[in-house]
């Protein structure tokens, strides 16, 4: 499903931030990505959610070689990926429910169903009272939950989350992890970048570690 072969990445003319990355993620698998700050976790995730291009190597996403896939096909591939950004990336002029509904609206879904579905998801993450709130009025944890709801609303084939439980209390953290596991059971491949070692203990998943831009597997499942 997702295959990285000898992938390297650098920003502009700078040094390589990722070196010789090789892995294969099977459909429906669950992975954690760990490593110290600056190890290249966010850069690796950017390659996965098709925000950046590698400077060398081969990336295959959902059977498409990304080096030869035409640009016009990228939007359709991106719609198969749900992303929880570390800094949330919520649109300030939209309400919480409209932020969550955005991926489905982009796809052209019926607006009534989109709103209904977005509302249900926000209730599920504990934001039933904050449907119409603007991001500026939400706390860090609330923003994170809106971002997670937005990432999962399209039932993506791949869910990529950068520190998804960093701003929530332990109870909400385990609730969100439960959501990710449920999605994983339905066939979504999940990749979570985290510093939180307690998460690694609670969930059956393979653990990838990045250090100085090189990837190693601590455990495989």
């Amino acid at each position: 499903m997702i295959r990285f072969e000898n992938v390297g990445m650098r920003y502009g003319m700078g040094p390589e931030v990722l070196r010789d990355i090789n892995f294969h993620l099977r459909p429906g698998s669950f992975h954690f990505l760990t490593g110290p700050s600056g190890a290249g976790k966010s850069s690796l995730l950017k390659l996965m959610y098709l925000m950046s291009r590698p400077s060398r190597g081969l990336i295959t996403m959902f059977g498409h070689n990304m080096a030869t896939t035409p640009r016009r096909k990228l939007p359709a591939l991106r719609r198969r990926i749900g992303v929880v950004f570390q800094d949330f990336h919520l649109l300030d002029h939209l309400s919480a429910i409209d932020n969550v509904a955005l991926p489905l609206r982009i796809t052209g879904f019926n607006d009534e169903k989109v709103v209904e579905h977005a509302g249900e998801l926000l209730k599920w993450v504990g934001l039933a009272e904050r449907l119409q709130a603007r991001p500026a009025t939400l706390s860090g944890g609330e923003k994170q939950r809106v971002a997670i709801a937005r990432a999962v609303i399209g039932r993506p084939s791949l869910l990529v989350a950068d520190e998804p439980t960093g701003n929530v209390d332990p109870a909400m953290g385990s609730r969100l992890m439960h959501l990710f596991q449920e999605m994983n059971k339905l066939g979504t491949t999940v990749v979570i970048a985290t510093h939180d070692v307690t998460l690694l203990k609670d969930v059956e998943a393979s653990v990838m570690a990045l250090e100085n831009g090189r990837l190693s597997f601590l455990s495989r499942r």
Binding site: P75, R79, H89, P103, I106, T107
Partner: peptide, 10 residues
């Protein structure tokens, strides 16, 4: 940028 990442077409 965000819309592009969410899969919005040109």
């Amino acid at each position: 940028d965000l819309m592009t990442l969410l899969g919005a077409t040109h």
